[in-house]
Design a protein around this nucleic acid. Structure first.
Lengths: 156, 156
DNA sequence: CTTGATTAGTTCGACTTCGTACTATATATA
DNA sequence: TATATATAGTACGAAGTCGAACTAATCAAG
């Protein structure tokens, strides 16, 4: 009896449709923006992995990195192969588990990350002039909770 | 001289880094969620195109549809080929321009769209129980403005 | 009307993504 | 210890995405 008298269901799905649609397009466009600033064959995924290792510390295993980015481990194998070919990482044996590896950032990897951040800077500063930083910061908790929900409810 | 006394730059880029990171993961996870509800070989892109034609009217050209989704026309050729093979669209000659086509939704295409919306309903209702609809609605204007900004500032 | 430049759409090739199957190592159980 | 199960990583193949080059049709300029 506490049902509202509108004919639409309580959770009007159209808001979510539009939400996911906007998110998808932003993902696509921001990816293109980032990649326009990166050296030739390097993608956002490459930068993201290097950035992750630079911020949280290297020595992680491929699987740990794959889990951090919610991608299959086969995808991470491919991404890491590209980073190794570029000279940005090296792989070392994992003393704790001989099946595994530890990924280390090289000097070139750190330099790549610093340079990319610097090249992206002007774009982000211009963005900050149009999109208030507070608005972006205010949206983050919502996006985090949405991501967490989706993450916890995969593949029922 | 109006610079704040913190060492970080005025537009701290880390907020945007995290913002785009969350958006990317949400895009990826929501895509997977949607596709788990769609018939075998059909992707979110297929649904999105059919939904677009159902909501805004069919008879659009492939290029118009490609522009609406910000994808290259070659990608749309591929997507439309899949939809035609599935029997959800037909192509008719464009009387105004013989190089072009007009894309029409078939009955099966409408049915596919209605059924997909219905199948997605329970997921979205469950989502609405965890993520307040008001929060989603509140985030939309910000996401729209971000998308618009990125859209207007592509490829300088 | 004819020539040159544009545009709509397709084909082709390179690349990313990711599921399946496999190998090697680790862990649990008898 | 022996065996079964689970896990880390790779190899391979199928499918999506997209840039470059191409064809056909349109438009602009003389």
């Amino acid at each position: 009896m506490d049902k509202p008298d509108t004919p639409t269901k309580s959770g009007d799905p159209r808001v979510f449709f539009e939400l996911f649609n906007e998110v998808g397009i932003i993902s696509q466009l921001s990816r293109a923006l980032f990649e326009a600033r990166l050296p030739d064959g390097l993608l956002v995924t490459h930068f993201s992995v290097v950035n992750h290792l630079a911020r949280l510390g290297d020595g992680k295993t491929p699987l740990e990195i794959a889990n951090a980015f919610q991608v299959p481990k086969t995808t991470m194998t491919h991404t890491l192969a590209g980073l190794e070919k570029a000279g940005f990482i090296t792989t070392e044996p994992n003393a704790d588990d001989k099946r595994s590896k530890r990924i280390k950032l090289t000097k070139a990897g750190h330099a790549f990350r610093d340079q990319a951040v610097q090249l992206l800077g002007p774009d982000l500063e211009r963005l900050a002039q149009e999109i208030a930083l507070e608005d972006a910061a205010a949206a983050l908790p919502f996006l985090r909770s949405l991501r967490t929900y989706l993450d916890n409810n995969r593949a029922d």
